[in-house]
């Protein structure tokens, strides 16, 4: 059975004064898929992701996120997505529990839901003993895992991850990816950007953006075959070197 498309875009374009940041991109992401969204700095990844999150209005083209239109139904989009970036995730001066509570509250979850889900989450991450500690005191890897769990706390249909694993050690990075796999098994769609090319291999499908356009979109294996490369690194370098515009 073909899974339904949860993200669809058609000729999605964003122009800033005299500059086309995202140039007519069209792709679909299926429910439960782990979708890698790669591109060199300045290729237009961030702009595209902002449009998909309903934060930025496209100049032209179509896109629906979990059935909601990116032009008109941004409120609905925000309810059905989760978001985590390397830069901002949790409040360092709140405890683990307070952070979870806060996010649960933002999404209007009931106290009972928050309580039950918090217990589950703390258990899953094995941080029950740290529940009342300030987030600032946790190691980076734990913070990132917690941030991810918080991003999917309200059980969104899609979660957007913007370079989620920067700077963490290889073991923690894999633990993080295990969380991603688990979420994907539960049917949550993962939309992830990364600078680690080996992480691109963990994705079901990968798109590579060059100069605002999607230059390639396939499974990691398919991409390697097409570009006659042994690693995703090679594929990426071959494509990104074609870029003519510098990042901004």
């Amino acid at each position: 059975m073909e899974a339904e498309n949860i993200i669809t875009t058609e000729e999605l374009t964003k122009r800033f004064a005299g500059f086309t940041a995202v140039d007519a991109i069209s792709f679909n992401v299926k429910k439960g898929e782990i979708f890698g969204f790669l591109g060199a700095n300045g290729a237009g990844k961030t702009t595209a992701m902002r449009m998909l999150c309903g934060l930025s209005k496209p100049t032209s083209g179509k896109a629906t996120i979990a059935g909601a239109d990116v032009y008109k139904q941004t409120e609905q989009i925000k309810k059905s997505i989760g978001y985590m970036s390397q830069k901002f995730s949790l409040y360092e001066d709140l405890t683990v529990k307070e952070n979870i509570r806060f996010y649960g509250g933002i999404y209007g979850k009931t106290n009972a839901f928050i309580k039950e889900k918090t217990a589950f989450l703390l258990h899953q991450l094995n941080i029950e003993n740290e529940a009342d500690k300030l987030v600032a005191s946790l190691p980076l890897g734990w913070k990132q895992k917690l941030a991810f769990s918080v991003a999917i706390f309200h059980e969104p249909q899609i979660v957007f991850l913007d370079e989620p694993t920067g700077g963490v050690d290889p073991v923690t990075r894999r633990e993080f990816w295990n969380l991603i796999y688990q979420a994907s098994e539960r049917g949550i769609t993962i939309f992830v950007t990364t600078h680690y090319m080996d992480e691109a291999e963990y994705c079901n499908r990968v798109s590579i953006m060059v100069d605002g356009k999607i230059e390639a979109l396939d499974t990691p294996r398919g991409l390697k075959e097409t570009y006659n490369a042994t690693t995703m690194d090679d594929v990426f370098l071959q494509l990104a070197r074609k870029a003519t515009r510098a990042d901004v």
Binding site: G166, D233, A243
Partner: peptide, 8 residues
């Protein structure tokens, strides 16, 4: 090279 893309 932190935060720099693969080409750079």
């Amino acid at each position: 090279t932190t935060g720099v893309d693969a080409v750079s």
